[in-house]
């Protein structure tokens, strides 16, 4: 196993996909206890990370003006 990237720095979709892979591996393969524990712990922190990202997410809206990005305020 290569040194895994820190969970905190992962983008949501990357973390989510890795989580799905881990669940699939835990379900389908036989591992040593050590490996299983590592997968389990990483999966847990990925799940927490994803949930936190969703919880904190707020749609970011910008618009292009003269090839530059400026925040879009939009009339409500």
């Amino acid at each position: 196993m290569t040194e895994p990237e820190s969970v905190e720095s992962l983008a949501f979709e990357v973390a989510f996909q890795e989580l799905e892979e881990i669940v699939a591996r835990l379900e389908q393969e036989e591992h040593t206890l050590e490996e299983s524990l590592q997968l389990f712990e990483r999966g847990q922190s990925l799940a927490r990370h994803c949930a936190r990202l969703l919880e904190q997410a707020e749609l970011k809206v910008q618009q292009i003006i003269q090839d530059d990005l400026v925040d879009f305020e939009g009339e409500s």
Binding site: L19, L33, Q44
Partner: peptide
Amino acid sequence: RLSLAEAADTMVYRWGQL
């Protein structure tokens, strides 16, 4: 969110099994 909860459950269950 459902998938996340499901994944977490599956992992706990699978870990228990293992």
